[in-house]
Design a protein around this nucleic acid. Structure first.
Length: 488
RNA sequence: GGCGCCGUGGCCAAGUGGUAAGGCAGAGGACUGCAAAUCCUUUAUCCCCGGUUCGAAUCCGGGCGGCGCCUCCA
């Protein structure tokens, strides 16, 4: 059975079939870089990462594009406040997001286009819409989309065109729109725009692009006339994506995207995240507080993307423990003695069954929770076998380790967690020395001295495990953050 | 008001017609000098009331409760 996705366009689960077999073109709505990204942004980005990884895992040749919006009202306002141009203003935020994305284990996409690099394409698109009679100019040099000329308007969001008709609200509108629901393709220049370098020349006058047109232009230019997949947060369904459809399909006459996937907004400690509630959390803050990146990744990824997700301190701690369990299991497996025999203990079978169950869950609209369930069921089964068997057939151990690696190509939890366990040479040498000292104390049955050393190591986040083969150690990080989750 | 989502054990969360995955936490036990890790055992009238069905957490109807989007917030 193949991948099935919930398409916002049809509000149904549909078998996923790219336009061109084996090849997938994806466009994901990225951040507006006028500030640091918050965990809500990263729920979406990590979902994009999951889609990216899973499609590749399934063997598709994936072309994945996520934009960076570097011009809009807020950006212009903030750049003015700083007294710099929008390019200079946005660049640090763009870099910060890339760093955070790396830290959280996001695989690089193929392209991260900046809106301001595609102004020519946007102008071209607007020109086409004007030619086709789908747009009109106003006195202030703006261009608006005439949604009454696009019969399909509303098909994505399910909006009823007959509601909120022109005339009801138009009086309160200060633009020269013909219909209150028409939206800007091009905004006539204002002095503030010039101040920060946010103005370009177009055949119909100087100005800057509207918000929606950038995604149409970049998607068409970098992915193609018809995207296989278009991703975004649920808030973008209307008006952003609705307007993208109107623009793109109005210009090309072809479907803009085959499948639209929308991520549900997360909550923080049970509440909607918002600046006014004071529970606005940036990823930057979490990382500075030494919250484990793997725990963040796990929590943001652990619920299926259309389900409600509550980001909480308790959840972070649970996630940290969950990732630790996976890492411990992998360590244990790697260290377990093997023998060259062919008889099986059922581990290979369990591994292949797990792989199937994982795939089945993920194929069902990317049900990560189900996929994680399959993985942890395997961990339980395998741990029980490891408890029982002093030696493992080499092939069985390879099968188990192979499964972990394979599933982690999609999940990326071991990948990120492993990085956190790494220690530098100096610390490692110190730990080894302390462990030897403790071993001597233990030989002397001097338990107090031995325990004191163990406590000393624990202070540095080093946890010891005494076993028949000697003492193993690991670094477990400093915990899922000491502070409460809802930091101002 | 329009469109839509959700309500499963202490917390989180799969399962959408055949009597309940998994993570975290708790309790008891094994192992250990003590731990850690691991294993074993243990914790669910699936929001309520009707209905359909041989059979429903799963379908239908009605309640109750929580939530999202609806003028640039992922």
């Amino acid at each position: 059975m193949g991948l099935r996705l919930f398409n916002t366009l049809t509000r149904q689960l549909e078998p996923f079939e790219p336009l061109e077999p084996g090849r997938v073109g994806v466009y994901a709505c990225g951040p507006t870089i006028y500030g640091y990204a918050h965990i809500g942004n990263f729920r979406s980005f990590l979902f994009y990462d999951l889609v990216h990884r899973y499609l590749e895992w399934k063997g598709y040749d994936v072309h994945f594009v996520m934009n960076f919006t570097d011009v809009d009202d807020k950006t212009i306002r903030a750049a003015r406040a700083e007294g710099v141009g929008i390019g200079e203003f946005t660049e640090p935020f763009g870099e910060a997001i890339m760093e955070e994305a790396d830290t959280l284990g996001m695989r690089r996409f193929d392209l991260y286009p900046r809106a301001t690099d595609y102004v020519d394409e946007m102008i071209q698109l607007v020109a086409t819409l004007l030619e086709r009679g789908l747009a009109y100019r106003t006195d202030d040099g703006s261009v608006f989309y005439d949604i009454s000329a696009f019969p399909d308007y509303g098909k994505l969001s399910g909006k009823d065109l007959e509601k909120g008709r022109a005339g009801e609200r138009v009086a309160t509108d200060d633009y020269g729109k013909e219909d209150a629901r028409d939206f800007a393709l091009w905004k006539g220049v204002k002095p503030e725009d010039e101040e920060v370098g946010a103005a370009w020349d177009a055949p119909w006058g100087r100005g800057r692009p509207g918000w929606h047109v950038e995604c149409s232009a970049m998607g068409l230019a970098e992915v193609g006339t018809t995207l296989d997949l278009h991703l975004g947060g649920e808030d973008l369904i209307f008006p952003h994506h609705e307007d993208e459809i109107a623009q793109s399909e109005g210009a090309t006459g072809k479907p803009f995207a085959r499948y639209w996937l929308h991520v549900k907004h997360l909550k923080v400690e049970g509440q909607k995240m918002s600046k006014s509630l004071g529970n606005f959390i940036t990823v930057r803050d979490l990382l500075q507080r030494d919250v484990s990146p793997a725990a963040i990744r796990h929590q943001l990824l652990s619920a299926q993307y259309r389900r409600e997700l509550n980001f909480s301190q308790a959840g972070l701690e649970a996630s940290e423990r969950a990732v630790r369990r996976l890492l411990d299991f992998q360590d244990r497996l790697r260290a377990h003695p093997v023998e060259e025999v062919s008889e099986g203990l059922g581990l290979s079978e369990a591994a292949s069954r797990t792989r199937e169950n994982f795939q089945e869950a993920m194929d069902d609209d990317l049900n990560v929770s189900g996929g994680l369930g399959a993985l942890f069921t395997f961990v339980n089964e395998a741990n029980a076998i490891l408890d029982r068997e002093e030696r493992l057939p080499r092939s069985e151990r390879e099968a188990a380790l192979g499964l972990l690696d394979s599933l982690d190509e999609v999940l990326g939890l071991l990948e990120v967690g492993r990085r956190e366990r790494q220690v530098d040479r100096e610390l490692a040498a110190w730990v080894e020395e302390r462990i030897e000292a403790r071993a001597r104390a233990r030989e002397d049955r001097n338990w107090e001295a031995a325990d004191a050393i163990r406590d000393e190591l624990a202070q540095e986040g080093i946890v010891l495990e005494d076993g028949p083969e000697g003492t193993r150690w690991k670094r477990v990080g400093t915990g899922a953050g000491k502070e409460a989750g809802a930091a101002g």
